[in-house]
Structures are given as structure tokens and as C-alpha cells.
Design a protein around this nucleic acid. Structure first.
Length: 430
RNA sequence: UCCGGCAUAGCUCAGUCGGUAGAGCAACGGACUGUUAAUCCGUGGGUCGUAGGUUCGAGUCCUACUGCCGGAGCCA
């Protein structure tokens, strides 16, 4: 008999089916047992009456332990008392693999312990819900760009040079030469934009910074669109449309998961265009008015971001930063060339910067000057300068961190739960 | 790298003034024919992170170290 997925059972009421999965929990009452099975698609209450089954089936259901794998056959029936509205009247119950002393119990645990057993923690209800939301976010990102005629350009992970010359990179050996794990695909996308007009990359990125906060991972996923002939205002519109779309998709298609996580949906319903936009100068004034120590020219730190985010209901776009505190490739603002046409999008509720983007310098000589000013090795950037040498064009792009986005949508406080196997300071196992 | 905190049963924790190690959950045994984190009765389970010091006596006080957690910086 073919397996049926638990989520499809309401369409099989009255039929005899076989379910394969793992024992989530079990409640017993003498000659009656209620094993709860999960199969990845849902949870199913099974009912085993001693007098209705063989001694072998009874013993199997009686002795089965939490998280053992099982195959159960029985008749589906509608039952109000069961979660999900259906239950399975068991005829046969078979243990495929016994789980001996499963470490995660239905009671509370600390995150240090849970991270040690991350490979098992993935089975838990909340983790399952978070990773399903991540799955939906990743699919909606691909749909968004595919539907708008963007071409996916997979950027290299092994690179010869530090993209922005700022962050600390993981170093590895490349047949006797130094190589680094990529911290951004952007520089590789700009030339590709001259081939397709609209491109994006989506993959893992690596930062060797010894960050120890809930907003940081050593290995995280980033999506980076890059658009030819798109200028600064259009870039902000693209970022807004993108974020509104992703949040909307998650609310549409992950309602069940958001409910499991007890996410306050009113916070997500506010994510509608246009988002509030303020300049860096306004942001500094706002911080001062809230009594924060902030001066023009300072970087906006985590605490400051949260204060700004809490002043608005939707994600906030901050624009026109001092060029001195931003990356070398950002286009100067036309009205004041000490400002850069860079934008950050700050998520609400203290989740921090989810998007960073800019219009790129397209003038060859200005870009060369900036490379010199930042002390970067010109020879390593020759290929990057070529985009400005052979038919240059104004262009813009941004990067969005997937984990921060998923953490915000899911309402989980720490990034480590939004990626299946987080790489953090002092943690590369499992 | 810097600042703060924590380390006791498989897990989450309590442990008073320094005087022979405790609870809940999990595991195991038993009772129970509609349970919803089922309930009830019982059993087993410990090198108190490591090393040193003070003391008649240290889980408890002191020192160092290790590990972990949270935050800062950096950033997405």
C-alpha cells in the first residue's frame, strides 16, 4: 500500500492508508494508546485499542519510544477531538528503527545543548516551522526575480581578492596561492549586468569577523540583484517592492508556520509600500532628539538602528550616508559629493539592517581614484574597472541577508535558528 | 579583541551560615478504554567544569585555567 502524507489525510476519510514517520509523542490509558506520528508534512493522532489489534501490533505501540521511525496502517476517520480533525484507527503498527534515549524531550532545553544536537533539533516543531518559512522566502526570492526577467548569475565562492577590502575573510590555499571565501557576489554581478541588464546572485557568503551577536553568522546566505541603467530612486523602489512581495508570500503560504511560532501578524501586515525613507542626516537628528549620542559622520550602530526602527511601523530606508563611512564603489550624491548614494533598510522590531545597497560609480576615472584612496590593489581590480572602460552605464544593486529576513518574518530573536546548520564563533559542529 | 554572566543527574534548575547531594522532566517497572505537555504509584541515576589554595570539614570561600552564553566593535 502506498504511503499517504499526513497533510493529505482529510481527503482520505474512510479509507485504509499507510503512514510512515516518527513518533512525536505518546499518551496511554490502559488498553488504549494514542501515539502521535509526524512525517514532515504534519502530525497525526493514531488510536490503538488493545482488543482490536494483534498482540504484535499492541506490543509495538506499547514499547515504541519517542522519535522511533514507524509504519502504521489503519483507517482514517474524522474526529473533532484530534488535532487536525482526523485520526487513524490503527490496524497494524510496525517499528522500523528504535530511537534509544532521544536527547530532546518535550520539556524545555537551553540553546547551547540544542545547538549541540542541532541535527536532531531540526525535527522539533518550531525549527520545522522556521525552516519552512526560510524555504518559502527562498522560493519567493527566485520567483520575484524570475518574474521580472532577471537572470540568475551564480557568483564564485572562491575568490582571489577581498571584494571591498574591509571585512576579514576566510583564507584558504589555492594550489599554492592565497584564495578567500567570498563575502559578496556584487563585483562579479556588475559585469554580468552588461550582458543581461538585470541579474542577481543568491548563495552563501562568508565573514571571518569574530562577531558574537544574535545578528551575525560566519556563513550566511545573501541575495544580490544588480540592474543596468537603474538609478538611486529606482533602486529604493525595487527594494521596497521586493520586501513587500516576500513578506506577503510568507503570510499567504506560511500561515500555519507563523501560527506555530505565535508571530504577531499585525506587525507584518504593516509592510506595505511606500516605506518611510529618511536621509542619514535626518537619522542623526532623530537619534539626537531621542537623547542618543550621535554625531554626523558616525556609523549607526545596533542600538541606534533599533531606536530608528522603533520610530516607524514599516521597514525604514536610510539614504545618503557620508561617503567616508561607506564602500569605495558608491556613487557620490549629485548635490553633495561628500555623501554617497547608498541605502540601508532597517527591519522593524530590532532585527537590524536587512538590506544594504547603492548606486555604483560608473565613471572609470572616479572609480580608479576611489580604489587608490582606499589603498586597494589596482591590478586586482582591473577586470572590475573594465565594466567602466567598455561601454559604461549607470547601475545599482543591493544585497539582502536571508537569515535576518527570515528571523524578522518568523519573529525569532536569534539568527542561528533560521539556517539549518549555523556556523558561529566557536561552533562548526554539527 | 574588549565588557558582563554562567558551569550541580540525560535535560532544565534549586542547594540557606562551610557540616554526608535535591526537585521536575526524561528513562525503567506498575495502574488506567478517549488522551491533548494525560494522570497516579514506584525504581535506578552524581568525579558538583579542571587544577590548586584556605579549613577539622568545600557544591558553597579564594586564585588560575578551560568551556559556554549574552553584548560591543564589524557588518547582512
Amino acid at each position: 500500500m502506498a504511503n499517504v502524507r499526513i497533510k493529505d489525510l482529510p481527503q482520505h476519510v474512510g479509507e485504509k492508508v499507510t503512514i510512515s514517520g516518527w513518533l512525536y509523542n505518546k499518551r496511554t490509558s490502559g488498553k488504549l494508546q494514542f501515539p502521535i506520528i509526524r512525517d514532515g508534512s504534519g502530525y497525526l493522532q493514531c488510536v490503538v485499542f488493545k482488543k482490536e489489534v494483534s498482540p504484535e501490533t499492541w506490543d509495538a505501540a506499547d514499547s515504541v519510544t519517542q522519535e522511533s521511525s514507524v509504519r502504521v496502517t489503519g483507517t482514517v476517520r474524522a474526529e473533532e477531538r484530534a488535532q487536525g480533525g482526523v485520526e487513524l484507527g490503527v490496524e497494524s503498527f510496525e517499528i522500523l528503527g528504535t530511537a534509544q534515549d532521544y536527547p530532546i524531550t518535550p520539556k524545555e532545553h537551553g540553546t547551547a545543548f540544542l545547538m549541540d544536537v542541532r541535527h536532531l533539533w531540526l525535527r522539533s516543531k518550531n525549527q520545522h516551522a522556521i525552516l519552512r518559512i526560510r524555504n518559502e522566502v527562498e522560493k519567493s526570492i527566485r520567483d520575484f526575480f524570475y518574474d521580472r526577467d532577471f537572470v540568475l548569475i551564480d557568483s564564485p565562492i572562491l575568490t582571489a581578492n577581498a571584494a571591498e577590502g574591509t571585512s576579514t575573510l576566510f583564507e584558504t590555499d589555492y594550489f599554492g596561492e592565497k584564495a578567500f571565501l567570498s563575502q559578496s557576489g556584487q563585483l562579479y554581478l556588475e559585469p554580468a549586468a552588461a550582458s543581461f541588464g538585470r541579474v542577481y546572485c543568491f548563495g552563501p557568503t562568508f565573514r571571518a569577523e569574530k562577531s558574537k551577536t544574535r545578528r551575525h553568522l560566519m556563513e550566511f546566505w545573501m541575495v544580490e540583484p544588480e540592474v543596468a541603467f537603474l538609478e538611486f530612486d529606482g533602486l529604493q523602489e525595487l527594494a521596497e517592492e521586493f520586501v513587500e512581495y516576500i513578506v506577503g508570500r510568507a503570510m499567504d503560504r506560511c500561515a500555519e508556520e507563523l501560527k506555530v511560532l505565535e508571530r504577531d501578524l499585525t506587525r507584518l501586515e504593516n509592510v506595505k509600500r511606500p516605506f518611510p525613507r529618511i536621509t542619514y542626516r535626518d537619522a542623526i537628528e532623530l537619534l539626537k532628539s531621542k537623547g542618543m549620542p550621535a554625531n554626523f559622520g558616525d556609523d549607526i550602530g545596533g542600538d541606534e538602528e533599533t531606536v530608528i526602527a522603533n520610530s516607524f511601523n514599516a521597514p525604514v530606508i536610510i539614504t545618503r550616508y557620508p561617503a567616508a563611512i561607506k564602500a569605495f564603489y558608491m556613487q557620490p550624491a549629485p548635490e553633495d559629493e561628500s555623501l554617497a548614494l547608498g541605502m540601508d533598510m532597517i527591519a522593524p522590531e530590532g532585527y537590524g539592517e536587512i538590506i544594504g545597497g547603492s548606486q555604483r560609480i560608473h565613471d572609470h576615472d572616479l572609480l580608479l581614484k576611489r580604489i587608490h584612496e582606499h589603498g586597494l590593489p589596482v591590478d586586482k581590480f582591473q577586470w572590475y574597472l573594465d565594466t567602466r572602460k567598455y561601454g559604461t552605464f549607470p547601475h545599482s544593486g543591493f544585497g539582502m541577508g536571508i537569515e535576518r529576513c527570515v528571523a524578522w518574518i518568523s519573529g525569532v530573536p536569534h539568527l542561528r535558528e533560521t539556517i539549518p546548520y549555523p556556523r558561529m564563533l566557536n561552533r562548526i559542529y554539527p
